[in-house]
Design a protein around this nucleic acid. Structure first.
Lengths: 340, 340
DNA sequence: GGAGGCGTAGGAAGCGCTTTCATGTGGCGA
DNA sequence: TCGCCACATGAAAGCGCTTCCTACGCCTCC
């Protein structure tokens, strides 16, 4: 059991650097130096100061520090949305690394917000650097922030001039997926998702088309929101026609899981009568029956790397833009049919 | 701390309230009043000020504001861990509501951190209030923060004296689950999870025991980490013995999904030879085959409510502790056997 | 016509910290 | 013995904002 610091008698309000200085019999400048090691302090003095800090339970005010030092010791991260396991993992990696580097993390979800740009700008005023995921704000806002001198890293979004970026290699994995599907005996392939909604999805669509195109297959694209219910609805529509697709390539796992339900509802055997694939490899993907063929992304690593890249910029360790591309894995399971 | 770089010659630093005041031909006090509406300002003056703000693109420094106004306009939230869909939903609800109330959100994950208590205390210094989820820090830290005058709300954790709390009604749902299982022809029930690790799990265990006990069934408890791999391993051990359990009641869905895999691996038909239940109703629960019987918690509402309760404390709208208990739903699917 | 009231606005004092600049001290070489 | 130079330290000047207190018109009311 740790003893709690004794609050000063008769004092009101939190302990300040002045209280510590008085207690240690030194000036406030010395307290600051002793605590931060920003300048040499005699060993005896330092000991006195640290003792006073301990006795009074002194915690420097962040507001004071950040005003004087013009630094926030905090990073921001902006999500389109926080639901789904995808972003949570990114945040986890980001927070872990940022905190290891001594920075707090402020989160902002733009989804359903009246004025995302203003919210991001506000966030920008409280942090030393910011990570933007996907299409949360338009390019001109990204550029404005960056031009203003705020370090910015974009994740899962196409490169913006002069701004660091960290991405998963969607194109290669999508191409591999397309080629894998071409290996099955498929002729009519439909892509479910809205490439124009998300740059990341646009890459998936492009890769899939390239992979299939190499084998003479020309997929179609059908817009679809990124949730299960939409996936089920859109899939039901696609499968209701006579000349239905042999394969549904879905922009994410939620859509695919919804599509599986829709296909089964009209009596199709997924993996035999029809192939269905997802993207993200969420937990449900491997527990679904048939298990979902999908693509695994290094989500946690994305967050970790973003935090590191951002830190280099904040500390001015590096001034040239850095663009990271992380590998992704095609995960073949049963939903795309018996393995040839 | 980082050395501040001298701004290049001719470079205009960030716009301050002085710049705005000069441009509008008024004093800084008037700018402040015009922007915050903290005191009456003549309409003509206000227009001049707002025009200057617009032209200069003035954004008040948060550090300055928070130092002068002794407020941060920010809330903290502390998670044990951020992986899994559970906490992400809570965060989503929390962030949404906090931001609607004009507050930013700082997140902190204590999992795998060398000194969680210190991290929480540090966080406490940058926010106006804090939400603690589960067993992230010991009670004495919660009490210390609260005693220090910082509004604190605990979520998914037993009430702490004088501290607001928001919880899901685990006991009732667990009792309902226990009773439901007793309705199937089960004699030997094993609970997988560590009640002593998490207060929330302790409640689940208690409720299950009560529900089964009412029908003369005495379940056993087997410690288990809260991930899939542990669930599979512990379940495999339990099922390997001759007199194996008829039912595995798992502390969360991950454990249950692992247990399903383990059971199937030794040839058991889940839902017929053995009943398995989870907790949380993650997406994978409804896609698993057999679909998982589980308990749905109002996670998003938990986050939203926590933000509201906290806000009342911060604004001193309320000074008596508030303890919220949200209803949870038993979701019966196929993994616990054919419905009687 | 003078005193008081009211609405408006500016000056200036902090908020708690970092950092510069000036000062005091002791050690050292000449 | 004297002067010089590191070194350690304190006083004080901000950092950008809010807010108290005061000042100044101008109007109203005796």
């Amino acid at each position: 059991m740790k003893a709690l610091p004794t609050p000063p008698e008769g004092e009101t309000g939190p302990v300040t650097i002045y209280d510590v200085a008085a207690r240690a019999g030194v000036g406030i400048a010395t307290v600051s130096r002793a605590m931060n090691g920003s300048a040499p302090v005699a060993e005896a003095t330092r000991a006195k100061v640290l003792a006073a800090v301990e006795e009074l339970g002194f915690r420097p005010s962040h507001a004071g520090t950040s005003l004087a030092a013009r630094t926030h010791a905090a990073n921001g991260i902006v999500f389109p949305d926080l639901s789904g396991p995808y972003y949570a993992e990114v945040l986890l990696g980001y927070e872990e690394t940022a905190s290891r580097l001594g920075r707090s993390v402020l989160v902002l979800a733009t989804h359903g917000r009246p004025d995302p740009d203003a919210a991001v700008r506000d966030l920008a005023g409280r942090v030393d650097g910011i990570v933007l995921l996907g299409r949360t704000v338009p390019d001109h806002v990204v550029e404005a922030l960056s031009a203003f001198g705020l370090p910015v890293v974009v994740v899962a979004r196409p490169e913006v001039a002069g701004v660091d970026s960290v991405r998963a290699n969607s194109v290669d994995a999508a191409r591999a997926l397309g080629e894998h599907l071409a290996g099955h005996d498929l002729r009519k392939v439909a892509f479910l998702g809205s490439p124009e909604e998300s740059p990341d999805v646009a890459e998936r669509w492009r890769g899939v088309r390239e992979g299939l195109g190499a084998h003479g297959i020309e997929p179609t694209v059908t817009p679809c929101l990124f949730d299960e219910e939409s996936g089920a609805r859109v899939a039901a529509g696609l499968l209701a026609v006579d000349d239905r697709p042999d394969a549904l390539v879905c922009a994410n796992d939620e859509i695919a899981l919804g599509a599986i339900v829709a296909a089964e509802q009209i009596g199709l055997r997924v993996g035999r009568d029809i192939a269905i694939t997802g993207w993200d490899d969420v937990m449900a993907a491997r527990h679904a029956r048939p298990a979902l063929t999908t693509v695994r992304q290094p989500m946690r690593a994305l967050g970790t790397l973003a935090a590191e890249v951002l830190d280099q910029r904040i500390n001015a360790t590096r001034t040239t833009p850095r663009h990271e591309l992380l590998a992704t894995d095609l995960v073949v399971r049963d939903s795309c049919g018996p393995h040839p």
